[in-house]
């Protein structure tokens, strides 16, 4: 069914070869590297990075919401680097925010937190921050392979009135300028992140919706399976980049 010399495996081999031949520049490049020196400094200085306020808020929430009854912050190390995961109970993929919501509803019997609300973002950014500096190592569960392929199809599908795919900008034209903005490779290795354009912290799904609206397409509903499939593909595409959460972006 899945021929060993086609699809992502071949892409991975090709990538390894490319790295061997052309050096590491051929690998994925974090948006961090193409930002202005000022923004890079802002991200790297925990006292200047506005995302760190949300991490602190998340640390408080982690205790207040009762997460520490089962989890330690140390045990969260590396978790974000391997998400999304496959969830046997729902027989499908689940992202970090989905797992936090599931934990809360099923184990604590409490009402769900709004996905893009302050508390959920704070909890997500706190948990993801525990993986800062660790390389993305996408979930090896074989059931995720199908999800990643779904995500790649979504990444390459043209959509909206302007009829553009994610890949047409972030693969084919990365490094060029869309009006004044440098097009990054679009790696999701720093979410939730602080975006100057938002003047706040936001999720990957929010960022994906921004682009979808930008090409005048109908965004998927918050939490939709399509976002999780896209996230799974993006994690594979960014394999090896380190988690930067909370990243800062223009």
């Amino acid at each position: 069914m899945n021929h060993p010399w086609t699809g992502p495996r071949l892409a991975r081999v090709a990538l390894l070869l490319a790295v061997a031949v052309f050096g590491p520049a051929a690998g994925p490049r974090s948006g961090f590297e193409t930002m202005s020196p000022e923004l890079r400094a802002m991200q790297q200085d925990d006292l200047a990075n506005p995302g760190m306020l949300h991490v602190a808020e998340g640390e408080a929430q982690f205790q207040q919401q009762g997460c520490t009854a089962c989890h330690s912050a140390e045990a969260m190390q590396g978790v974000a680097a391997r998400y999304p995961a496959f969830d046997a109970a729902r027989d499908g993929p689940i992202d970090l925010a989905g797992r936090i919501a599931q934990c809360r509803e099923e184990r604590q019997g409490r009402a769900p937190l709004p996905r893009e609300g302050k508390e959920m973002l704070a909890l997500s950014v706190f948990v993801a921050h525990q993986s800062r500096g660790l390389p993305l190592t996408p979930n090896p569960d074989p059931r995720m392979e199908f999800v990643r392929r779904q995500g790649e199809a979504l990444f390459r599908e043209r959509r909206g009135q302007l009829n553009l795919s994610c890949g047409q900008c972030h693969d084919d034209n990365a490094g060029r300028r869309l009006a004044g903005s440098l097009i990054p490779e679009g790696h999701a290795n720093g979410y939730p992140l602080y975006r100057l354009e938002w003047q706040g912290l936001g999720s990957l799904q929010r960022r994906l919706r921004n682009c979808m609206v930008g090409v005048r397409s109908e965004p998927f509903a918050p939490g939709a399976a399509e976002y999780i499939a896209l996230e799974a593909f993006l994690a594979e595409r960014a394999r090896g980049l380190v988690v930067e959460t909370p990243a800062v972006r223009p």
């Binding site: 043209r158 909206g160 009829n163 005048r216």
Partner: peptide, 14 residues
């Protein structure tokens, strides 16, 4: 041949 055109833009040309 357009897919998932946003509600505000449906049936309209650019």
């Amino acid at each position: 041949g357009l897919r998932r055109v946003g509600r505000a833009w449906q049936g309209r040309t650019v």
